[in-house]
Structure formats: structure tokens, C-alpha cells
């Protein structure tokens, strides 16, 4: 039900994001999804990659501040209103969504999010038979 996401702390400086990308590129790590949460002074880059552990090691070797966190990930059907339907379950259970992003991978539409109550969120997923995405779903066919 959960997948591992990398969070990289980053000051707002030209070229900073690019330096992260170059480390991943050099180490042949495929990026599945990338989003940036930004403030005036710093940002957190949230990455889903094919090999989170290797990515963390390589980024740390290159002096980046990086940690791995578990986040929730669900599959959506590719039609209007499906995200609304999924998130409605959480709203009804009075669970807050702290951040959310969505992307398509292969034929799948995927939503990734964090809530303020993980246990309760997992229960909502089970109870409503929502379709979880696993890390295996995000592996490319080629060698990572």
C-alpha cells in the first residue's frame, strides 16, 4: 500500500536541482516522478525512483541531504472524477491530505499522497478496496 519516496532538501540556488539529476543520471537511476515543494528559501524535492536505496546512497555521497519516507500510492481509473472519488473516502473519514501529486506511468494513472493519519488512511484503503500501487508496478522493463 505504501511506496518509498526520496525527499531531498535543497536551498534555492541555480543549478541545485540539476545537480541532483546528474547524480541520478550518472548512476543509471530512472526517475518515475519528480515534484518540488518550494518556499522562499528552500525546497523539498520529492522523487520516486526505481531504486530508492541506491539513489539515497549516491545522493549522500554527493553531499545531498536526503531521506526516505513511506507514502501512500493508489491507482486511479483513467476517467473524469476518479481522483475525486478516491479522495472523497478520506474526506468522509476526516483525514487531511498534506500533499498530493498524480502522474501516469505506462498505462496506469497513479496518485501519491500523505495524510495526517496513516493508520486511519490505511484502513480507508482496505475498507473501500482501493487499488494500491507497489514499487514493482513502477519498475521499468530495462535494468534500472
Amino acid at each position: 500500500m505504501t511506496i518509498r519516496q526520496l525527499s531531498v532538501f535543497m536551498e534555492n540556488k541555480p543549478g541545485n536541482l540539476n545537480d541532483v539529476l546528474s547524480v541520478l543520471a550518472e548512476n543509471n537511476i530512472n526517475i518515475v516522478s519528480l515534484t518540488v515543494a518550494d518556499t522562499e528559501e528552500f525546497g523539498i524535492v520529492r522523487l520516486l525512483v526505481c531504486d530508492p536505496e541506491k539513489a539515497q546512497v549516491k545522493l549522500r555521497e554527493n553531499q545531498f541531504t536526503v531521506r526516505i519516507h513511506d507514502v501512500l500510492s493508489l491507482e486511479m481509473s483513467p476517467k473524469p472524477g476518479s481522483l475525486y472519488k478516491i479522495l472523497s473516502h478520506f474526506a468522509e473519514a476526516e483525514i487531511s491530505i498534506e500533499y498530493v501529486y498524480a502522474f501516469s506511468y505506462g498505462s496506469k494513472s497513479i496518485v501519491v499522497f500523505r495524510t495526517n493519519n496513516r493508520e486511519k488512511a490505511l484502513e480507508v484503503i482496505r475498507k473501500n478496496n482501493l487499488i494500491s500501487i507497489t514499487e514493482n508496478d513502477l519498475k521499468p522493463n530495462t535494468n534500472c
Binding site: I44, R46, T65, R67, H69
Partner: peptide
């Protein structure tokens, strides 16, 4: 300097 162990995936924790 931020302490790496204090890094979370949400901005509001850092703020």
C-alpha cells in the same frame, strides 16, 4: 545547517 535526521517530506515541518 539542517540536521538530516530532521528532514521530513513536508515543508511545514521545516517551516
Amino acid at each position: 545547517e539542517l540536521d538530516e535526521s530532521k528532514l521530513t517530506d513536508t515543508i511545514k515541518d521545516l517551516q
